[in-house]
């Protein structure tokens, strides 16, 4: 028995769902952000698996770009979180309710 594309997709979907669960459940902005990154990595795993089993190069090149964009995004996102903490002195999501009502 060997590993098929569906096995990799299963792992990717489960990883994505775990990340989604974390985004919904946790209240700490940094953990939520980590879970978002987890979802992104799950998507790249699916892309690499598709690219491997379809004998194309495009999925791998897309993952290359995704990694670059993710690095830029993490830098900006963490800078925003630090600026937010400086102003509001908290990173708990349920305390950041300035737009409520």
């Amino acid at each position: 028995m060997s590993v098929t594309l569906n096995d990799y997709l299963l792992v990717s979907v489960l990883m994505f769902v775990v990340g989604f669960f974390g985004v919904l459940m946790r209240r700490n902005t940094l953990i939520v952000y980590m879970c978002l990154e987890l979802m992104l990595v799950a998507a790249t795993l699916a892309l690499v698996a598709f690219s491997r089993y379809n004998r194309t190069m495009d999925g791998n090149v897309f993952v290359f770009f995704i990694l670059t964009v993710a690095a830029a995004e993490v830098a900006v996102g963490l800078a925003i979180i630090v600026a937010l903490f400086r102003r509001r002195h908290t990173v708990q999501l349920d305390k950041l309710n300035a737009l409520k009502n």
Partner: peptide
């Protein structure tokens, strides 16, 4: 999956830079 370059880049960019940045911000806050 035979994507050796992507594995190396993932370790370098994510495990090296992103997680270090996360840890740095966690300590900072």
């Amino acid at each position: 999956l035979d994507a050796f370059l992507l594995a190396a880049v993932l370790v370098l960019v994510y495990a090296g830079a992103v997680v270090a940045l996360f840890l740095f911000i966690i300590m900072l806050l």
